[in-house]
């Protein structure tokens, strides 16, 4: 599918936590219909990048654009209303709310009928059907991931941000999880996924960025990244 225009774009973005410089001039573009992954080790600034998209962290320099519009300084709610949703790291469900309530709160900003999305999500995750009245905190890790993804999809986003979706999941669930991401993408949602599991992420992505201590050090199509020897050595766990 031919990329048209960036749904999400970073132009030389810098962020700071107090005196600590986190992102040091990050530029990236995510085009409509793509799956883009952002790879990197611990403390490389991956999560900060996602938080910057939503305005949860304010950039100190540079521009963040959603659908071609600079969103620097916008309140989070307004950015979300533009069609950005997030599956946060560790899922972070509203643990005391039921599964149904978690899904409903995902559609908080929508004023139209959400029942079609609700049905679609339950078709995607049939296991949740029997868990609807159960408290989210009592679900297994895999089920929680389903709720977290469902909750984000309830907003019917243009871009879905996913922060380390495979963290803390059993290997078999990780594979399922990436299958789901592909399904979501095929249904028309652009996905921006942050991962440490580079192999898996690149196997479904169209394009990949590698972040290292706040700088993009590699940017290429997923296929080229998988073939890149430097990449293989540093992130894909191959020795020599």
């Amino acid at each position: 599918m031919a990329p048209r225009r960036p749904v999400l774009e970073f132009r030389n973005v810098h962020t700071h936590y107090g005196p600590v410089h986190i992102l040091k001039g990050v530029s990236l573009s995510i085009y409509e219909g793509q799956i883009v992954c952002l790879l990197g080790g611990n403390a490389s600034g991956k999560t900060t990048t996602l938080k910057t998209v939503l305005g949860l962290v304010a950039p100190t320099a540079g521009e963040v654009l959603v659908e071609g519009e600079v969103v620097n300084g916008w309140p989070t709610a307004r950015i979300v209303a533009r069609g950005v949703s997030m599956v946060p790291e560790n899922r972070r469900l509203f643990k005391r709310m039921t599964v149904r309530e978690n899904l409903e709160i995902g559609a908080y900003l929508r004023t139209d009928d959400t029942s079609a999305d609700y049905e679609r999500i339950l078709d995607m995750f049939p296991r949740l059907k029997e868990r609807l009245g159960q408290r989210a905190g009592t679900l297994s890790g895999g089920e929680q991931q389903m709720v977290a993804v469902g909750r984000a999809l309830m907003a019917r986003p243009r871009v879905l941000l996913m922060d380390e979706p495979s963290m803390g999941l059993a290997p078999v669930l990780v594979a399922q999880n990436f299958d789901i991401i592909r399904q979501i993408n095929e249904a028309g949602t652009t996905v921006f996924v942050v991962e440490q599991n580079a192999n898996m992420a690149l196997s479904i992505a169209d394009y990949g960025y590698v972040l290292q201590t706040g700088k993009i050090v590699l940017a290429d199509t997923a296929r080229n990244l998988l073939a890149n020897p430097e990449m293989r050595q540093a992130y894909l766990g191959e020795v020599g």
Partner: peptide, 18 residues
């Protein structure tokens, strides 16, 4: 519902558009 969400996790509540 927004209050309940905020009480549980303010950051995620914000990310939901609240």
């Amino acid at each position: 519902r927004a209050w309940t969400a905020i009480r549980e996790d303010e950051t995620v509540a914000a990310a939901m558009g609240i």
